[in-house]
Computed example of a mutant assay.
Amino acid sequence: MDEMSSTPVRKIIHVDMDAFYASVEQRDNPDLRNKPIAVGGSAARGVVAAASYEARKFSVHSAMPSVTAKRKCPELIFVPPRFDVYKAVSQQVREIFAEYTPLIEPLSLDEAYLDVTENLKGMEIATEIALEIRARIKLVTGLNASAGISYNKFLAKMASDLNKPNGQAVITPRNGPAFVEALPVNKFHGVGPATAEKMHRLGIETGADLKEKTLEFLVEHFGKSGPYFHGIARGIDNRQVKPDRVRKSVGAEDTFSQDLHAFEPAREGLQPLIEKVWGYCEANDIGAKTVTLKVKYADFTQVTRSKTVPAPLSAITDLQDLIGLLLTPIFPLRKGIRLLGVTLSSLERQAPSAEPQLRLAL
């Protein structure tokens, strides 16, 4: 623990709404309650954006092709997404957060970090703050939220998954390093499938294995992520909760278990990535004018295609249209696609009450 002694212990809460999109739909439509539902896609095409817990019992999850989801759960009900409603509920939740602290860093419409080290209620125990926040969310929205409480962002994020749904967990400075050592690296927040696969090739299976590697080794193999991995392997993450942060870019990517060879599977594979980056922009009232598509082929060569528009994108459908324009010239393929990514840049803060832009003529 000597490595942490120079850093004051903070109290960080990560709040994560439970099956957010699906739970909103079940709340608003009594006929969907206690039934397996998937938001997004359809029985014949598309991908699942969110799955209710009833659907998750059949191993249905987000980013799964709809056809696969329906095969796993024949009773699955597909529901079209309503992002305007999700954003409105997200704003209600944000207002609850603001009753406790101004230090709020949204990650998407359904999750955020809160620094409650010094809070507006004068409460000393972060677990009690998390309990109150979750109770207020339930009272105001009718929805359940889970929470993780710890002394840094990484561990708070990990803790919020431990007692889902409708629960919370604490990782203290005393047990943080041991928790990380026992954790498989593919469970680490910030370690995607491709990075986990690379770690496995290097003999890194758990946090303990990661901790054994030197900083030089991690920088050599993982570049700028090396120092981050070196820190979290020891339970150290000094990143601050940053309200009103406007990042230079926001991106998401996915490595597929089987190479993609046709336009439609590629378009469907991009949908969860589109929803993820759009959710971040919506949650933070950020507009984006530049869209970049990343394509990595089976032989690990890659290309990127970008387009910048005059005004910030105003709707997820605009982003979908733009990605479609960038994707189309990639086909027909001479080799399969193993990874797709979407990045938004030229980000700027939007006034929450701003008039919506007209749909882009793309």
Rank of each mutant, 00 (worst) to 15 (best):
W278N: 03
L322H: 01
I274D: 01
S225W: 10
T292G: 06
G235P: 02
I316E: 09
T328D: 05
V291K: 06
V291E: 07
T308Y: 05
T328W: 01
Q302T: 04
E275H: 15
F256Y: 14
K248F: 01
Q320W: 03
L270V: 08
T301V: 11
T301Q: 15
R239P: 07
V303K: 12
D285Y: 14
F263Q: 10
R239D: 12
K276I: 09
E275V: 10
F256C: 03
L319E: 06
A252C: 07
S306A: 15
A311E: 15
L340R: 01
R338H: 06
L273C: 04
P310K: 08
D318Q: 14
A298F: 06
Q271Y: 12
R305V: 08
L322N: 04
D285H: 14
T308H: 04
T255N: 08
K224E: 14
D299R: 09
V291Q: 07
D318V: 00
K296F: 08
L293R: 06
G279C: 08
A315Q: 12
L313N: 07
Q240H: 12
D254Q: 12
K335L: 12
E220T: 14
G235E: 03
V241H: 09
S257M: 10
E275I: 03
F222W: 06
P329L: 00
G226Y: 10
I232G: 00
K289N: 07
I274S: 03
R239I: 02
S225V: 09
C281R: 07
I330T: 15
P310W: 00
L319P: 00
Y228T: 06
V246F: 03
T292S: 11
H221G: 03
Y280W: 05
V277F: 07
G235R: 00
T292R: 09
G336W: 07
Q271F: 05
I274K: 02
V291D: 09
L273A: 06
K289A: 11
G336P: 05
D321F: 07
